[in-house]
Amino acid sequence: MKNNTANTQKGASRKGNTPLDSKPRVTAAWVAKNLAAVVVAVFLLNKLVLDLQPGYNWAYNMLRGNLEAVQHYARTTTDQRFEMKLGLSHVYLRYLKECTPPDAVILLPSKEAFFPEGQERIFSGEPYNKLWATRFLYPRRVIIPSELGKTPWSEKITHVAIVNGVGYEYLDYEVPEKAPHAILPIHKKP
């Protein structure tokens, strides 16, 4: 029963042309027994596993559903796949990345700005989280409001991200037309 390949090999070579070396043959009895066993196994797997335990059913259907999605969207880019999973959060962070230089230090508004109370949640995930946002903004640095005035890097902010109209208060100049989502330099360019 043990899968000891070394022993099996030794045994086979020692015995030469003994019955051990004879090729196993597929017989009608073997086929009949095995087909009956397969039917029983499929029946049991179906009844005891998929029918009786919804967890397995869910897992199998989840895999099937995902495989269909994988095949359907096979030609998408990684960026598009991020967008499929993270929705507007990824679109927004990609926009911040495209509109700022690599050495930018970006002030990102708080959780409350991304998910204002009483309003529809258009973002998903944690785009307000420093590490979460860094994954998409790197090598740009990310500063969050709770760090303001507490770290040397918070003194080096170059840009302010505007989310749901929040963030204009950090600018040292007035913006005539306030868009709900934007990225603006913290100091007005001369």
Binding site: T78, R81, M84, L86, N129
Partner: peptide, 13 residues
């Protein structure tokens, strides 16, 4: 392989 990392613990750590 198809879906990029998107769960909270992966992206926040």
């Amino acid at each position: 392989i198809f879906f990029p990392p998107s769960d909270r613990d992966s992206l926040a750590a």
